[in-house]
Simulated scan of single mutants.
Amino acid sequence: MPLNILFAARPERWAEYETPLRAAFDKAGLGDYTLSMDIPPEDVDYIVYAPNSPVQDFTPYTRTKGVLNLWAGVEQITGNETLTQPLARMVDDGLERGMVEWVTGHTLRYHLGMDAHLFGQDGVWRKGAPPLAKDRPVTILGLGALGRACAETLAHLGFPVTGWSRSQKDVPGVTCLSGDDGLRRALASAQILVLLVPYTPQTENLIDADALDTMPAGAFIINPGRGPLIDDDALLARLDDGHIAHATLDVFRTEPLPADHPYWAHPKVTVTPHIASDTRADTAAEVIAENIRRGEAGEPLLHLVDRDLGY
C-alpha cells in the first residue's frame, strides 16, 4: 500500500516545497507514495505541517503516524487537544546556519560599534578602538539546536559565552547555567544578550524590568526567538533611561509589527521583519524524509515535541 503524505500548509508553499520533498523522498527510498494537498483524512499516513494551515482539527486523521512541523516553533499547536499524533518540530541545517549568521552579524555589529560609523558621519574624528572579543561577554538564553550553534560560533570567535537553559546543558567552550539563580548570573554578565529560548507560559516576559535591571548598564539585546519573551514596556523604559543601549528585535507579539508601534520610531531599536532565519525547503525536505523513513522502519522520530514542556 502506498504511503499517503498530506502537505498541510498555505497553498503558496506547495510550489516551493513539492519538488524538494519529492527529491528527498526518492533519495530516502520511500518507494511508492502519494504527496498531495488533498488526501482524505482517514487515508493520511503523515502530515507535513505548517501551524497556519487550514488543518486545525486532527480528529479525522486516525491513521496518521506523525505530524512533521515545518517550523522550529510549535507554541501555536502544542495546546491543540485534537492533536494526539506524534509531533516533530523542525530542526534542520539550513535553519540553524541562517540563525548563526544573523546572530553573529548583529553581535559583531554591537561589539564593533558599527552603527556609529554607518550612521554617525558628522565630520567628527572620534578615536578609540572597540575591545577585543575576549573582553565582551555574551549571554545566550536557550541552548537548543539554534542556541547551541550560535554559542559555539561566538565562542570560536573569542567571545566569553554564557549559555542558560531550563535544564542543565554541556557545551564545550561555553559556561552553561540553569535554574533561577543561573538565569540571574547569566544576565549579570551579559554585555550582549541573545534570546533563543522557546516561548512557553514559563518564558513569557522572561526579560522583564527585574531582568533588565540585572544586566550591565549599556548592554545590548538581540531577540530572534519569540516576541513575548520581552516585556515591551519594560524594555522601552530601560532604553529611554539609557540602561539598555540598543535592541535589535526580529520577532514581536503582533506580526507584522503595527505601523504605530513605538519600536519603529525609537532611535535605540532596530526592527527586522522576522528574517533572522527561515525554513529552507531543500534542507527541511531532507529532515521530513528522514523522519518518514524512520517511522516506516519502526525507529523513533527525530525532534519529537514534549507536550508538557511545550517544545
Rank of each mutant, 00 (worst) to 15 (best):
G105D: 13
R109W: 15
Y110M: 15
Y110C: 13
H111L: 14
H117S: 11
F119K: 12
Q121D: 13
G123D: 04
W125V: 11
W125P: 05
W125N: 09
K127M: 11
G128V: 05
P131D: 06
A133R: 10
A133S: 10
V138F: 10
T139Q: 01
I140K: 01
L141P: 02
G142Y: 02
L143Y: 00
G144C: 05
A145S: 12
G147A: 04
R148C: 12
A149P: 05
E152C: 04
T153K: 10
F159Q: 13
P160C: 04
S165H: 11
S165D: 14
K169S: 12
V171P: 03
G173V: 08
V174Y: 00
G182E: 00
G182F: 01
L183S: 00
A188R: 05
L195N: 01
L196A: 04
L196H: 05
L196M: 07
V197W: 05
P198W: 02
Y199V: 13
Y199D: 14
T203L: 02
L206M: 14
I207Q: 01
A209H: 10
A211P: 02
A211N: 03
L212G: 00
T214Q: 15
F220A: 07
P224I: 07
G227R: 08
D233C: 13
A237S: 13
R238Y: 06
L239V: 11
D241N: 15
H243K: 15
T248V: 13
T248P: 07
